[in-house]
Amino acid sequence: MSLLFLLIIGIIFFVLLIFILSPEYGLISIIRRMKKEQTRELIEDALKHLYDCEYNRVDCSLSSISGNLSLSKNKTAEVIIKLEAMNLISSGENKISLTSEGRSYALRIVRIHRLLERYLADHTSIQETEWHNIAEAKEHETSEEEARKLAAQLGNPLLDPHGDPIPSESGEIPSRKGIQLNKLENGKFASIIHIEDEPKEVYSQFSALGLYPGMQIYLVENSKEKIRFEADGEECILAPILASNITVVPILEKEQVKESFKKLSSLKQDESAIVVGISKAMRGQQRRRLLDFGVVPGTIVRAQLKSLSGDPTAYDIRGAMIALRKNQSDLIYIKRI
């Protein structure tokens, strides 16, 4: 009978585990949400928000903080008083700004957050839309020592996957460049340098459109109702309010790419083409692997063999036969010869 007993205990244990670990209603996440009210996280989140305001050169108020932290005004006021007492912020009338100590605290958190995002993007197969939330949860429990190790492991990256600069250990960060997409003029070429990852709903729209930092765009139409632009040869339409979440830098005439590129996946069997670029959406180990195989701008590739189920396809790349899946060859841009 005892094994049946064990089985039942096992099942109970399993149910209990679900009860504890379930992401939305599980015990751990409830406790976590309760913990969120704890001061440290609130303080750090508030500092980060203030820093964001400062970086984007907008003013911060009590209500914007309470909105960002989804906290009642009263609670927010308590946090602000605490921050002031710790000499991390100074508040004037209607404007709250960081002290230098507050700024370096904020930069520390920002650094950890962006390193974590970069790690998730390059070293895991976790979905793009989840990066921010995971980093948000982990940034408060990552020590500086761990951040240093992480940075070393990642090869001391400069930017996070959204194109934001990662502050150095001593808190250096370059100043903001570029303009918002809705301020770009008609008929201009530009390249995306930053995509805001909050709010999540908006970001997931961008990621569904396949937009990424480093992408070249061509603005077709900029009106009050909509922003219409071509991105890697495909047309996208965004509302101006959404477009303001994307930062771009105009590209000089000589760097412009006149024609829209084709994707490697469009190459038919026995056709050849020249690689002109690899999408920035190809990241981390996967990107390095491709570069090592010699997939760099200027390389001639030839579609040689299709798998019997149609995917992957083997390409002749510098004398070697390399099989690429369609989701990989979609991210390599080519020019027909």
Binding site: T124, S125, I126, Q286, F293, P312, M321, I322, A323, L324
Partner: peptide, 19 residues
């Protein structure tokens, strides 16, 4: 497994067809 416990592990496909 790929949807649960291994979600966070890195993944990079490459396959070379030797002569």
């Amino acid at each position: 497994l790929s949807k649960t416990v291994l979600k966070g592990e890195p993944s990079a496909f490459s396959l070379e067809l030797p002569p």
